[in-house]
Amino acid sequence: MASRARLPGTPASIAVLILSFFQGSVCGTTFTFSNRCGDTVWPGLLAGSGTPPLETTGFALAPGQSRALYAPQGWSGRFWGRSGCDFDAASAKGSCATGDCGSGEVECRGAGASPPATLAEFTLDGAGGKDFYDVSLVDGYNLPMLVRATAPECPDTGCLVDLNGLCPDELRAAHGRACRSACEAFGSPEYCCNGAYGNPNTCHPSQYSQLFKSACPNSYSYAYDDATSTFTCNHTDYTITFCPKSTPTRSLPKSDHSFTSSFNFSCNFEL
Rank of each mutant, 00 (worst) to 15 (best):
T123A: 14
C101T: 08
K130P: 06
T118I: 14
A117F: 04
S136E: 08
V138Y: 13
G128N: 06
G102E: 10
P115A: 15
D125F: 10
G110M: 07
G112N: 05
F122D: 00
S114I: 14
G129M: 06
V106L: 11
G128Y: 06
V138D: 05
E107Y: 00
G112T: 05
C101P: 07
V106K: 00
A92R: 04
G110D: 08
L137Q: 03
G102K: 04
V135C: 06
K93A: 15
D131Y: 12
S103D: 11
D139H: 13
F132A: 13
D100M: 10
F122N: 00
E107K: 01
Y133A: 00
K93T: 14
G99T: 05
G99C: 10
A117D: 04
S136G: 10
A117W: 02
G94W: 00
S114Y: 12
T118E: 09
S95F: 04
G112L: 03
P116K: 13
D125P: 08
G104M: 04
G99K: 01
C108K: 00
D125M: 09
G99I: 02
G94L: 06
D134R: 12
F122C: 01
T123E: 07
G140E: 04
F122P: 00
G129T: 10
G129N: 10
G110K: 04
D125L: 10
V138A: 09
A117E: 02
G102R: 04
P115H: 11
C108P: 11
A113E: 05
A97D: 02
P116V: 15
G94P: 01
C101M: 08
D139Y: 07
S114D: 15
A117C: 09
A120S: 14
C108F: 01
L137P: 02
P116Q: 14
P115I: 11
G99R: 00
A120R: 07
A111T: 12
G110I: 08
C101D: 05
D139G: 13
A127P: 06
S114F: 13
C96N: 02
G104P: 00
T98V: 14
K130D: 08
D100P: 08
G94C: 08
K93M: 10
A92M: 11
E121F: 04
C96I: 02
A127C: 10
G112H: 06
A120F: 13
A111V: 09
K93G: 09
G94N: 07
G110Y: 07
A117R: 01
S114E: 14
A120P: 00
C96R: 00
A117H: 03
E107I: 02
F132N: 13
S136A: 14
G102F: 05
G110Q: 05
T118C: 12
A92H: 11
D131V: 11
S95R: 04
A117Q: 03
D100S: 12
S103M: 10
F132P: 02
T118D: 09
S95P: 04
V138P: 02
F132D: 09
K130M: 13
S114K: 15
A113V: 14
A113G: 10
K93N: 12
E105P: 01
Y133Q: 07
F132I: 13
D139K: 09
E107C: 14
C96Y: 00
G129F: 07
